[in-house]
Write a protein that binds this DNA or RNA. Structure first.
Lengths: 245, 245
DNA sequence: ATTCGTCATGTTGTCTGACAATATGATGAC
DNA sequence: GTCATCATATTGTCAGACAACATGACGAAT
């Protein structure tokens, strides 16, 4: 990687592909991560010095430092002044990315399935733990969604708030934040589905009934019913999205 | 944040707390992230120029660039040569961290609960989709664990392999990698529990029976039983860890 | 008057060199 | 042998310079 012809010197023409890095630090970061994830450098190993890496990649120390700075914040390496940079015991443990270190994209069906699983468990937990406040937040989001429907809107933002309010009702902050993370990654997917459902199939009533069923179960503190209702909602959502699970 | 007295110049003594930054880029990164997460700078807003930030924080442009480089790789900002750095539409969406942007640590009970939820769903899916190969991998890990028991070991590494093999059997790469992520964060917690269980309570047989129950359910492709068995394993694990859920 | 090229300015991207702070081994005094 | 001292190597930081790009102002050509 990083072949000579594109990295010899500042003048890297490289006008072939649409993907133009435009940032040497990106390239170097990718290269270093793949070295670590690929096992070339194992936990505890010392990386080459910044000077050596700079010469190897044909870039200045500043670029190398930017790349290593990223590796540090992602938990791939730890540096010690005067000693060097060392691969961490559990490289990459600091942050989770949906796309694996090597590949670039993740199939929507896999992501949607992950969301479906979490959502079911979240609904179940929310039914057990929701307070009156939580319930009010969930009801409020559902009401906003209905207002949006009435005004010919999609209610996408309220939809997301609805699910995030349920996640908050679990009173598990990590769970809540992860739901949020996954949900927002699916946001565009959800939006497209919502458009087609609303405009061409007129199934917003169906979606609303599913949401109402979840809310009712959470109101009644019926954990099993909440899980079932969430599962139904997500399964139908997958159908509407033409995703097969 | 980053009050003047600690960032005026290279000579930042600051010998009060145990947390010694030792890296200005860390500090600047934290400050910038908290500005964005805190809403001071909203999506689409332009950040101050690198020069201005450098003067504001009392550090050189190189440090600012390292910090912004991290923000870019975490999806907080996007930069455009000649224009500036702009807050992303969905700041921080690129990576998920267990500790929220502001706080530093996450309670083990919350993390363990998240793992328990995922593990149940994972076991259920694995029961539906496992191939013969998957089954062999799971069996192998369990066998290794038993060998470790017999040799007076803890079998911790085989334990982790057991659960990761189940995750792999779902054939959902995102789910598998997330399980791995959470599991490794809990590794130390699990290890401590395993030590106490093995040495002082002699309950390794109990653990083994729970693992075997999960395996059997997956063998039989009995999704409901797999979920139940996983739930029981995690609930008992919580007890052994003295975590109340 | 409009359009277009040119220029000046500001910003990010990169390079270079220097020094400070820290770790490590070698050297030498005791 | 022990310990202080020094030289060296490496990361952390600073400073200045130039390249690449964006933007608006200005003026010439139509």
């Amino acid at each position: 990687m990083l072949s000579d012809n594109m990295m010899t010197r500042p003048f890297a023409v490289q006008l072939q592909s649409v993907a133009r890095p435009q940032c040497l630090a990106d390239e170097v970061t990718r290269a270093l991560v793949s070295h670590i994830a690929g096992g070339d450098w194992g936990p505890g190993d010392r990386l080459p010095t910044e000077k050596a890496l700079g010469e190897q990649f044909g870039v200045s120390r500043a670029v190398i430092r930017e790349a290593i700075s990223r590796l540090k914040s992602e938990g791939y390496v730890a540096t010690h002044q005067g000693k060097g940079a060392f691969v961490a015991e559990e490289p990459g443990l600091a942050a989770f990315r949906l796309a694996a270190a090597g590949s670039d994209h993740v199939g929507n069906e896999h992501l949607f399935e992950l969301r479906a699983l979490i959502e079911q468990s979240t609904a179940e937990l929310a039914a057990r733990r929701r307070t009156a406040r939580d319930l009010a937040a969930i009801r409020g989001a559902l009401a906003d969604m209905r207002s949006a429907y009435a005004q010919d809107g999609l209610g996408l933002e309220a939809d997301i708030r609805f699910h995030e309010a349920i996640a908050a009702a679990t009173h598990n902050p990590v769970l809540g934040r992860f739901m949020q993370f996954v949900g927002r990654h699916l946001r565009e997917t959800i939006r497209l589905a919502r458009v087609s459902v609303a405009k061409y199939e007129n199934k917003l009533g169906e979606v609303d009934r599913e949401h109402a069923a979840i809310l009712t179960a959470i109101e009644r503190r019926d954990a099993a019913a909440a899980r079932t209702a969430a599962a139904a909602h997500l399964a139908n959502g997958a159908k509407r999205l033409k995703i097969r699970l």
